[in-house]
């Protein structure tokens, strides 16, 4: 066991610990004032604003979809919901580049719906709605994959009891179903948020990567590296790393809460 412990620890420190350390080391190696001014670099601020906008739009939409789809799949099984169940997981097997390219082929000016959309003055690709669609597509299954097993495990008896007590379907959902799955929803929401904020490949394809307009934080980081401006790039990278570590910590807390509520 002792030998195994050393092997495992060494592997993880080299593979994960070293990069993680490097991100923060590089960010702060020129001192706090350099970090402070890098934080206020206007192009990065613009990209952060766009990233937050996308997150604010996509996360609730995907959460609603995930909850609705899970309920349909578990509580109203039919041929259609079986197909839905399979389809939701498809983005997990796809490369982010694949997702970006397929959206581009459907909605860009050269794509299937490009000219009808353009005729109505709608521009989806290479503007924020396209970025939102790409982010939504790659994070599509994250909420439902948390809820579906929980709904199956909960069973229907609580909901049916509420019905025998006179509760409407809506009331049953809000007073019985939703409270029972709140931790799973929170978990899925946070996963979605983290994925949307950190998505790179799919967004790269559909955004056009125009500074101050269609550049998200991940794209800004990459551009800084390509333009040999690593200090600025690492500032953005450190922010994203901090967000993801925070997300991990909160996810851990949620998991523990969920487990505790299960022991009820």
């Amino acid at each position: 066991m002792k030998r195994l412990r050393i092997i495992a620890a060494t592997y993880l420190v080299v593979l994960v610990g070293a990069p993680l350390y490097l991100v923060f080391h590089e960010t702060f190696k020129s001192g706090w004032s350099a970090f402070w001014s890098a934080l206020h670099e206007p192009q990065m601020l613009a990209s952060i604003k766009l990233t937050l906008l996308i997150a604010v739009v996509v996360t609730p939409l995907n959460a609603l979809f995930g909850i609705g789809a899970s309920l349909a799949i578990v509580r109203h099984p039919s041929r259609w919901t079986k197909a839905l169940d399979r389809l939701i997981d498809v983005p997990l097997a796809l490369s982010p580049i694949f997702v970006g390219v397929m959206l581009e082929l459907a909605y860009s000016a050269a794509g299937w719906f490009g000219s009808p959309l353009a005729a109505h003055g709608l521009r989806i690709m290479f503007s924020w709605p396209g970025i939102a669609m790409a982010s939504a597509a790659v994070s599509l299954p994250l909420v439902s994959r948390e809820i579906i097993p929980l709904l199956r495990e909960l069973g229907e008896t609580q909901e049916q009891t509420a019905a025998t007590l006179g509760a409407s379907a809506r009331r049953t959902f809000f007073t019985v179903t939703l409270p029972a799955m709140k931790w799973a929803v929170a978990y899925g929401l946070l996963l979605t948020l983290a994925r949307v904020i950190g998505e790179y490949g799919a967004v790269l394809v559909v955004s056009g990567n125009v500074a101050y307009q269609t550049q998200t934080l991940t794209l800004d980081i990459a551009e800084n590296f390509e333009n040999y401006n690593p200090a600025q790039g690492f500032t953005g990278a450190a922010m994203l790393a901090t967000v993801s570590i925070l997300a991990l910590i909160i996810l851990g807390i949620i998991k523990r809460r969920e487990r505790a509520s299960h022991e009820h």
């Binding site: 069973g155 609580q158 049916q160 009891t161 509420a162 019905a163 025998t164 409407s168 029972a180 509520s261």
Partner: peptide, 29 residues
């Protein structure tokens, strides 16, 4: 429909509303 039949139903697993107290469970109807 079930909700208008005015019946009392107890399931084998008792189906307690796990996030509600005993009083809240009983008060639900």
């Amino acid at each position: 429909p079930v909700r208008d039949r005015n019946i009392g139903f107890c399931f084998q697993d008792y189906a307690p509303f796990r996030h509600m107290t005993v009083a809240q469970n009983v008060a639900y109807g």
